[in-house]
Design a protein around this nucleic acid. Structure first.
Lengths: 131, 131
DNA sequence: TCCGGTGTTGGACACATTCTAACTTTGGAC
DNA sequence: GTCCAAAGTTAGAATGTGTCCAACACCGGA
């Protein structure tokens, strides 16, 4: 399914600007910031403005095509992986890696009196070992 | 142990500004942002500058008296609880609550090939039920 | 008392993000 | 095709968080 179809299916009018953003952000396995998206999209759509990138990213988040993650200091990153998973943050490079949901088991979240949990993830920080 | 002793023991010269910051930030069970600390400390120390608040908070973090947490969008919050624990973020109010380490069990983090985990926490998001 | 080091200050700066007001494009209605 | 209103886009201004910097204040020791 290409980007046009994805947007249309979500009820988003597929303008060239939105397509450029969606193609970049839904394709890769990265966790880009809004500014990284802006920089990348300028190659294919040089007149696009920052505001449109922010607007489009928010739109994609609201329609559930993208998730917003608070993982790096000072910036918001976006995650195209929509199924539940955990995150590993490399403390040296700031890079964020997805950790499959099945790789970790969390017990006890349903027994927290007073808290209605909508979302849960394990955030790991450390160093990525060289291969 | 009062704030003067705490700072002295950490090898920090206890100036009035640092005491004001330390007294506020080490006392409460809140997770304040730097700006909230600044606002609060101005009541007891009206001439303090933003720079000193940031400098002092960083100093306290470096000396291990405080932890920096990336939990809210766009801002860094500080946490006086130094032992390992998890966090619950209220999606409506943005308030952050500590979840005791023993309340949740996480398995599998030591079997992640390629990742050397230094720190781990579960981040829960949802709504706090009224009591 | 003088001096060097440490700490503080306020303002300038940098960056991420949102807002605004004007402009462009689109999809009908005629 | 022409017109219009709605939707989308744009550049730049504004806001908010955090850092940097140069000048000043304070303290302890010679």
């Amino acid at each position: 399914m290409n980007a046009i179809e994805v947007l249309a299916q979500a009820g988003i009018r597929p303008t060239p600007q939105r397509l450029a953003v969606a193609e970049f952000v839904l394709a890769g396995r990265t966790h880009p910031t809004a500014d990284e998206v802006f920089a990348a999209v300028q190659h294919t759509c040089p007149t696009i403005s920052r505001a449109t990138v922010y607007n489009t990213l928010r739109l994609l988040v609201n329609k559930g095509l993208l998730r917003e993650q608070v993982l790096r200091e000072g910036v918001t990153v976006f995650d195209a992986e929509r199924t539940a998973h955990h995150h590993f943050v490399d403390e040296e490079t700031g890079q964020i890696h997805d950790v499959p949901w099945e790789a970790l088991k969390v017990y006890g979240a349903d027994q927290l009196g007073g808290f209605e949990v909508h979302d849960l993830q394990v955030v790991l920080r450390g160093r990525r070992r060289r291969a």
